[in-house]
Computed example of a mutant assay.
Amino acid sequence: MMTDQKRTEHLSFGPVELEITDADRSVAFWRDVIGMRVRSSAESIALGTETETLVILHPVATSPAVKGHAGLYHLAIHVPDEGEFARILARFNEKRHYASAIDHIMSKALYLSDPDGLGIEITLEMPERVREFRTYRGGVELIDAEGRTRQFSETLDVGAVLAALPDDDISRPLASGTRIGHVHMHVGNLEAASAYYAKIGFIPHLSLPSFGFADLGAGGDYPHRIGLNIWQGLYVEPAPAGTARMRRFEIRFSEPNGMAKSLEKTSAYAIEGMENARQDPFGNQMVLTATG
């Protein structure tokens, strides 16, 4: 049940690090299509907004992403308002870059891939549009704020989105306040992966074994912070070295004690030689930091 008062989340995300094949091609994509600024460039390239790094590129891969493995399904870039979401969609149209446009009711989303085939979602959070979730044996349905039953994925009204465009400057870089809002991963077992991320501190929200999907939140009004699926198969191995893939992502704790407890609970998943780093049972790596 959604509430009128926004609740504080205890977990958030820092940058997502990607291993890619071609630095120039990927930088052009993230800068000119997505709208990120290049924040630093050396052996790796940091991109994001004027105030925040969102993606770090490591040009070490020798081949594009491959299917049939655990790893990144998509990283999700959450924008601060409808105008920014409309600006990105208009830029995609101007660049003739295809994106799948979906209305999830609790959010509006654009799905696309980077030049190496790594998944990206552009998200506008709209939890105020949802009254409640209902799960049943065959799946899940949403009851919207007006009491209507809605599907979890509906076709996005692109015209209505573009009507919110505040001006004609579609080349403007991503606004401050844009952030990594969730990470969705392929895993080899939903129960094991959900249990692991619960130890990190995420809160189970949906478990849909018939769809091969599970969802966990971070304590706020928007429930989708970690997505898990088994759509690449059961007990799949991590993506091979040398292929484009996610290297790791950063989880930020609002309280140092929360990070310390999570590190203790997941000590069996420590990565040797990396401080405060963990990997889930299927090789997805993360580093834990405290912002408080």
Rank of each mutant, 00 (worst) to 15 (best):
I271K: 08
R91N: 07
S26D: 05
E255L: 11
S171V: 06
F85G: 08
I203K: 14
A214D: 14
H186D: 04
I120D: 01
S262F: 01
A86G: 02
T62R: 15
K261Y: 06
L57C: 06
P240F: 10
R96E: 13
T8C: 07
H182I: 04
F213M: 13
L142D: 07
L89S: 06
V287D: 03
F253E: 07
I230D: 03
E84T: 12
Q151V: 00
S113P: 03
P80H: 12
S40P: 00
T51I: 02
R150L: 04
V187S: 08
K265E: 11
L112P: 04
L11H: 12
Y136E: 11
A193Y: 09
S40Q: 08
N189S: 13
L47D: 00
V27T: 08
G138L: 13
Y111P: 10
A260F: 12
S171T: 14
A214N: 14
L110T: 04
R87H: 09
I34H: 07
I102T: 11
L18V: 01
S100D: 11
E50I: 01
R252P: 01
I45L: 07
E154P: 12
P240A: 10
G159V: 07
G117N: 09
L216M: 09
G242C: 11
D215H: 10
G212P: 09
G212S: 03
E146I: 01
S113R: 15
V33P: 00
E50Y: 01
R137E: 13
G139Y: 08
L89D: 03
E19D: 10
V187C: 15
D32Y: 06
P223S: 02
V33H: 06
R25F: 03
A218D: 09
G258A: 05
L54F: 05
D103N: 15
Y235Q: 12
T62E: 14
Q5G: 06
D114C: 05
E272M: 10
F13H: 07
Q151S: 11
I143E: 15
A101Y: 02
E82A: 15
A101K: 14
D116K: 08
I170F: 04
A239Q: 13
T53F: 10
G220T: 00
R247T: 03
E146V: 06
Y197N: 00
I45R: 06
K265Q: 11
Y235V: 00
Y111D: 06
A260V: 01
V38M: 04
N284G: 02
R134F: 05
G138N: 12
A163M: 07
A164F: 00
P80A: 11
V183T: 13
Y197F: 12
T51Q: 14
L288K: 02
E141N: 09
A76E: 03
G68E: 01
T243P: 01
D24S: 12
I105M: 09
D4W: 02
Q285A: 15
N189C: 10
G14N: 06
S44G: 02
A99I: 05
P64S: 03
P238F: 01
S210N: 12
D168M: 03
K6T: 09
A214V: 04
G217R: 10
S26K: 01
I88L: 13
F282I: 05
R137F: 14
M2G: 14
I203M: 13
N284S: 05
T51M: 04
E146W: 11
H182D: 03
M259S: 02
T155H: 14
A290V: 01
A241W: 07
Y235S: 08
T135P: 00
P59L: 00
T21S: 04
N284L: 05
V158Q: 13
L288P: 00
S210K: 13
L72Q: 06
